[in-house]
Write a protein that binds this DNA or RNA. Structure first.
Lengths: 152, 152
DNA sequence: GGGAAAAGTGGGTAATTGTGGGTGATTCGC
DNA sequence: GCGAATCACCCACAATTACCCACTTTTCCC
């Protein structure tokens, strides 16, 4: 069972985000409301249920330490990873450092992405999106083999 | 058993679409009225029975996370994917964000496309159609291998 | 063609959800 | 040890959503 869907939300003055009600039950079941938030290369935030995060983290740690790319990934993802718990009203507090990293203003976008969520600043999201659609349509960039014969 | 046929429909003031009656029985059987709506690159919406969608989604999630193209596709398709249930009158509510994405006005077109449906804004639909026919006639664009030996 | 049934359309109400803010407790630094 | 800042919980309001009912139009059958 995976997370999907897009939500327009707002941060309150304290930097809290209300997790949409439709996800809450599932989150309480799968991780007791214990979440981990970290950053992504394209300046958005990632939110994992703790157990899922631990798998990812383990994989990251095992990456070859001498590889430059691997080290950068480790520093970003593990470095910024912060535990956040759902409060009694189903909100999580996003730490200041993470909000700054993703340049989150008041209006944000939360999207389900399978095992995780992504959080975007609304402006960043809509700007990037126009870009993507263009790119995807023009077929810019290399298609991984797995995509070549994807039938929707 | 696949969905086919084209339907001229209208959204009501709340953004709901009445699923044509001839599909309803089949939809109730195959997924209990549990549908998933998401977006497509050329600004229309896709509607899948939940089980069908889950297959697609699983494939998308397994794509390599470091590939740019794959991430874009995931964000669009999984990000926008929203569960919609047929209500007691056989309608589905299309979320505001999806309606905006596909620029749906009042008059829309619903097209059966095998395992899924496509929803277009009526104007977008008729314009695009003219475009395509022209392009196909002029033989613009490359044919992927799978199309080269397609026999109609 | 007339009647009945089904389908499409519209709207009201009540419950849920998202958002904002206040207050007390705790923690951290000085 | 004290003050300031932060954090967690509580309550309240506003907007949205889901559910329900009623009306109009079309279709199908007799």
């Amino acid at each position: 069972m995976s997370f999907r869907g897009i939500n327009n939300l707002a941060l309150d003055a304290k930097g809290r985000m209300a997790m949409p009600a439709r996800y809450r039950d599932r989150l309480m079941e799968s991780c007791g409301g214990h979440l981990v938030t970290t950053v992504d290369r394209d300046h958005c935030l990632l939110v994992y249920p703790l157990p899922e995060w631990e798998i990812i983290e383990a994989r990251l740690i095992e990456l070859p330490s001498l590889n430059q790319q691997a080290r950068l990934l480790q520093r970003l993802l593990i470095g910024y990873a912060t535990e956040c718990e759902l409060d009694s009203q189903g909100r999580i507090l996003l730490p200041t450092m993470l909000r700054e990293f993703a340049r989150l203003d008041k209006k944000i976008v939360l999207i389900g992405q399978g095992k995780k969520f992504e959080i975007w600043d609304e402006d960043t999201w809509s700007q990037s999106q126009d870009n993507w659609i263009e790119k995807v349509q023009n077929g810019e960039g290399d298609l991984p083999a797995a995509l070549e014969d994807l039938s929707l």
